[in-house]
Computed example of a mutant assay.
Amino acid sequence: MPDTPIRILIVDDHPVVRDGFRGMFAADSDFEVLGEAADGAEAVERARTLRPDVILMDLRMPTMDGVSAIRELGRLGVPSKVLVLTTFDTDKDVRPAIEAGATGYLLKDTGRDELIRAVRAAARGETILSPSVATRLVSQVRAPADTLSAREIEILELIARGATNREAAKRLFISEATVKTHLLHIYTKLGVNDRAAAVATGFRRGLLDVNDTP
């Protein structure tokens, strides 16, 4: 048992999920649930105030998603370790979360004992990955040079939703010129010449999820 309880912040847009995690950790004296948040923006504000040891972070939430929240926590210098806990293990979810600074990445079907061990490990600063996520990351490391970066996939997703270069730049907090540069790299890597072809190729290669488009 640690000298002091591991302090946790639970972030998920589903109240029933938050209640389940709170009940799980509240029943163990090794842990203290400091609070909850229903989206990434609220998570950032609560983490700045509460300074939890570990944040259990969902990815797909309204207002601000989990990856954006992780980036913002890093920008603000919040020292909390972030353990992503989600139902998604696709390439476009895993890599951006890890690159943003997540300490670990687990799926919500993870067993109770495994999750508790993972939170303890995250509090120690250790990296924890579910087996399927670890396999995906290894595959990406071994992937050819034409693989899109996490940022390029983000831009391709926005373009698929109909965003202009200006809108994509505003959404990602980068310049319009940077978006254009990323698009040129996307075209080169995918072997296409325009936005429509890039989106079509993105869907064909599984880089884009049809459920993410309007």
Rank of each mutant, 00 (worst) to 15 (best):
P2D: 15
D3P: 13
L9Y: 11
D13E: 09
D13R: 05
P15G: 08
D19E: 13
F21C: 10
G23I: 07
G23H: 07
M24S: 10
F25S: 02
F25T: 03
S29H: 15
F31G: 11
A37N: 03
A37C: 05
V44G: 09
E45W: 03
R46A: 15
A47Q: 01
T49D: 12
T49I: 11
L50D: 03
L50N: 10
V54Q: 00
I55E: 02
D58K: 04
M61T: 01
D65G: 05
D65R: 03
S68I: 04
I70D: 03
S80N: 11
V82N: 11
V84G: 09
L85Y: 08
L85I: 15
F88N: 06
K92S: 08
R112F: 09
D113W: 03
D113R: 09
A122T: 01
R124H: 15
R124L: 15
G125E: 13
S132M: 11
R136L: 15
V138N: 10
S139P: 09
R142F: 15
A143C: 12
P144Q: 10
P144G: 09
D146S: 09
R151C: 01
E154Q: 10
L158V: 05
L158K: 02
I159M: 04
A160N: 03
R161N: 09
T164V: 02
R166I: 13
A168H: 04
R171K: 15
R171Q: 13
R171H: 13
L172P: 05
F173S: 15
S175M: 15
V179F: 07
I186G: 01
K189L: 04
K189A: 03
V192I: 07
D194E: 06
D194H: 06
A200M: 05
A200N: 06
F203W: 02
R205H: 05
R205C: 02
N211D: 13
N211L: 14
T213W: 12
